[in-house]
Amino acid sequence: MELIEQHTCFGGRQEVWRHRSGVLDCEMRFAVYLPPQARQRRLPVLYWLSGLTCSEQNFITKAGAQRHAAEHGVILVAPDTSPRGDGVANDEAYDLGQGAGFYVNATQAPWSSHFRMYDYVVDELPRLVEAHFPADDRRSISGHSMGGHGALVVALRNPGRYRSASAFSPIVAPSQVAWGEKAFAAYLGDDREAWKAYDAVELLRTAPEKLPLLVDQGDADEFLESQLRPELLRAAAEVAGHPLQLRMQPGYDHSYYFIGSFIGEHIAHHAAALR
């Protein structure tokens, strides 16, 4: 691994690392915030998954999360949103290809050679973090939009692996909205049964672990009705008896201004679960 960026921040260090990913077969970058407590002991980790068009930079420069992570003694890890590079398949549209990995394991050419973000987030990245940083095996996960979808799916598919899960403006039912239908058809093929493995609403119906979910959604979000559909998650949770705190926040949109307004509450929520 190669350290390519570091900054002192709220008594800790914000770092960005580059490494060769065996899972994705390309060079990858991820951000790590080490709060000041990491100099004395191993700490739990909150993984953050970002949305369409983002890299590891958006969260660390816009969310204001480091202050809260330093307060609670939580390491923050934010990977890039897809494999990247000249040899990696891409598309001219913003919602497919590089910057739009959707946190799935692609099965269709040309995407299947590199686009295995689910395995990267669940397995490879935590192994690196726990081997190379003062991190223990207490994990939580959160994310925004496409990354909110990823966080919910990863948590629901891996009972016992995460202490808590939350999301901002998640794509809760990608099988039923245009962003998800386009990406899933490309990455997973036309068999909609295969899509259910990466659809939070579908997974919630039979989730073996009732991990409480915290979801914040702005009611002024321009994608609310067309792409996000939080009411579908609420309905599925009610039917399944799955604990869900869905907070509709008046006046907030899809931006990092929204995330920055509530990230402190989310980190406090995760810190309580990670104790």
Rank of each mutant, 00 (worst) to 15 (best):
I4G: 04
G11S: 08
G12A: 04
R13I: 04
R13P: 01
Q14V: 09
Q14W: 10
W17M: 11
R20Q: 15
G22K: 05
V23N: 08
E27V: 07
R29E: 15
R29F: 11
R29K: 15
Q37F: 00
Q37V: 00
Q37K: 04
R39Q: 12
R39K: 09
R39M: 05
R41L: 02
R42W: 05
P44E: 04
L46Y: 04
L49T: 03
L49I: 07
S50D: 12
S50I: 03
C54K: 03
E56V: 06
E56L: 12
G64V: 09
Q66W: 00
A69W: 00
A69H: 00
A70K: 02
H72W: 10
V74K: 00
L76S: 03
L76T: 06
A78H: 02
P79N: 09
D86F: 08
G87H: 04
V88A: 09
A93F: 00
D95Y: 12
G97I: 02
Q98P: 09
G99I: 07
F102R: 07
V104S: 08
T107M: 13
T107K: 15
T107F: 08
T107E: 15
Q108V: 13
Q108S: 12
P110W: 09
P110R: 08
M117F: 09
D119K: 06
Y120G: 10
Y120E: 08
V121S: 02
D123T: 13
E124Y: 05
L125G: 02
L128C: 00
L128F: 04
V129S: 02
V129A: 02
E130W: 01
A131C: 09
H132V: 00
P134E: 04
A135M: 01
D136T: 03
D137S: 13
R138M: 05
R139W: 02
H144Q: 11
S145I: 01
M146T: 11
G147Q: 06
G148H: 02
H149C: 14
G150D: 03
V153N: 04
R157Y: 05
R157A: 11
Y162Q: 08
R163A: 15
R163F: 00
S166K: 05
F168E: 10
P170N: 08
S175L: 07
Q176K: 13
V177Q: 14
G180C: 08
E181A: 10
E181R: 15
E181L: 12
E181C: 12
K182L: 14
K182Y: 05
F184R: 06
Y187S: 11
A194Q: 14
A197M: 06
Y198Q: 07
Y198L: 02
Y198H: 13
D199S: 09
E202A: 15
L203D: 12
L203N: 13
L203G: 11
L204G: 11
R205E: 15
A207W: 04
L214A: 05
V215H: 05
V215F: 05
D216Y: 15
A220Q: 14
D221L: 10
D221W: 06
S226G: 04
Q227S: 11
L232R: 14
L232D: 08
A235Y: 01
A235H: 08
A240F: 09
A240H: 06
G241V: 07
G241R: 04
Q245W: 03
L246F: 03
R247G: 02
R247N: 14
H254W: 05
H254N: 10
Y256M: 04
F258M: 14
F258R: 09
I263R: 05
I263D: 01
I267F: 00
A272Y: 03
A273T: 03
